[in-house]
Simulated assay, not measured.
Amino acid sequence: MYALLSTLAAALAASSAAFAQPAEAGVFKRASISPIMGGQNFPDPSLIRMPDGWHAFATNAKVNGKEIYVQMAHSPDFVTWTYQSGVDAMPKLASWIDASSPRVWAPDVSQLPNGKFIMYYTAALKSNTALHCVSYATSSNVEGPYVDPTTTPWICPTAQGGAIDPSGYVNADGTRWIVYKIDGNAIGHGGVCGNTVKPIVGTPIMLQQVSATDGYTKIGSPIQMITNGVNDGPVVEAPSLSKLGSKYVLFFSSNCFATDLYDVSYATATNIKGPYTKYGPLFITGTDGMTAPGGLDIAVNGNHAIWHAYVKNTTHPLKQCIAKHGKGKGKKHPDADECDRNHGSGRAAFTAILSENGNLVTAATLS
C-alpha cells in the first residue's frame, strides 16, 4: 500500500511562477516522511536494483577520519536500509583528479549487457582545481571496486566551466544515454553559487548517447535538454532521466544548493531528445519538513527514487549540537544554523515511488 507523499508544489513557490502547470495540478494530503538510515549523511544519492535488492551510492564523505570517495548503502526491500560505513566503491583515483581535494560527487551506477557495471561520476580537475569533470569507472561487481581507466577526463568542457552530475539511462529501444550538467556557474561572475551577478552564465543539462555495449563510447554530439532561466536562480543541475507513463521525465534541481530555495523540479517530453517543458517543483523547502531538497535520482527503467535534503535536527537539539561539535582544541565552532538544519551531520537521503499522469508527477512512500 502506498501513502501519498507529495505532488507538484508549484503553487507554494513564488520562484516557479513561469513554469508550465498541468491542469490537474494541486496539493494533496501528504503522509509524513523520514530520512532513511536514521539521517546518515548521504548526499547526491543514486539507485540501482539487483536480485539481492537495492544498492545506493553517494558523494564523498569523511567517515571515522577516513576519506571515502564513493559511499554505499543497501536495502533488500527499499524500506530497510543499511549504511556500509567505511566501505569505498572507488578507492583509487584516476591520475587526472586533484588528489589533494578530489571532490568525488554524484556517482551513478548502471549495468552493461555483459553483466559488468559502469559508474559515472564527477571529480575535481588536477590541472585546474576550480573545475570539475565527468568520468566513468567499471567493475565486475555492483559494489566495486570501480576502476577508472582514463588518463584524461571523459567529459570536460573547460571553456564552459567543466561538467558535473552524470546519470545513465537505457531507453526501451536499447539505446544508452547519459545526462549531465555543464557547470557554467564555476566560471560565473559572483553572487550566490557564483552565478547571480550578471551576465548570468548558462548551466545547460545535456543528453549524450553512448555505446549500448560499453557505456562510454560517445555517439554523436550532446543535445541540450534545458538550461537555467530567470526562475531557476543560478543553476539547473543534478539531472536524472526516466520514462514514467507516456512521458520522458527529466528530474533536476534549481536554485543554489547552499540556500533554502534549492528544490527538485522536472521537465517532460514525448521524445527522448525533446523538446522538454519544465514543470514543478516536486519538492521544496517545507515539503514534509525537508529543507533544500535536491539531487533526485530515479532507477533506470523504474519509478523508485532517492534524493537528499536537510531536515530539522531533532536528534541533537541546537545547544547539544553546538556542545558536541563546538569549541575545543583544534575544533571550529559550528554555525548555529548548520546545527539547527542538519539531521545528525550532512544531508540525509529520502526515498519514494514516483508516477506521472498528464505532466503531473506524484511521489508516494511505502506505508
Score class of each variant (00 low, 15 high):
Y2M: 00
L4V: 13
L8N: 14
L8K: 06
L12S: 14
S16H: 05
S34G: 08
P35M: 07
L47M: 06
F57M: 00
V70H: 03
Q71N: 08
D77T: 00
Q84H: 14
L93E: 10
A99M: 09
P102Q: 11
V109Y: 01
G115P: 13
Y120N: 02
Y121L: 05
T129L: 10
V134A: 05
V142W: 06
E143D: 12
I155H: 01
C156N: 03
G161R: 11
I164N: 01
Y169D: 01
I182T: 15
A186L: 08
I187P: 02
C193N: 14
V197P: 03
K198N: 15
I200S: 06
L207W: 08
D214Y: 11
Y216W: 12
K218W: 06
I223M: 06
G229P: 04
N231E: 10
N231F: 05
G233Y: 03
L244M: 14
L244Q: 07
K247Y: 09
F252E: 00
V264L: 10
A267M: 04
T270V: 10
G274D: 11
G295D: 07
D297F: 01
H304K: 15
H308C: 12
V311T: 15
H316R: 14
L318W: 08
L318D: 06
K319A: 15
C321T: 11
G328H: 09
P334D: 06
D337E: 14
R341F: 01
G344S: 03
E356R: 03
T362H: 05
A363K: 08
A363Y: 11
S367Q: 11
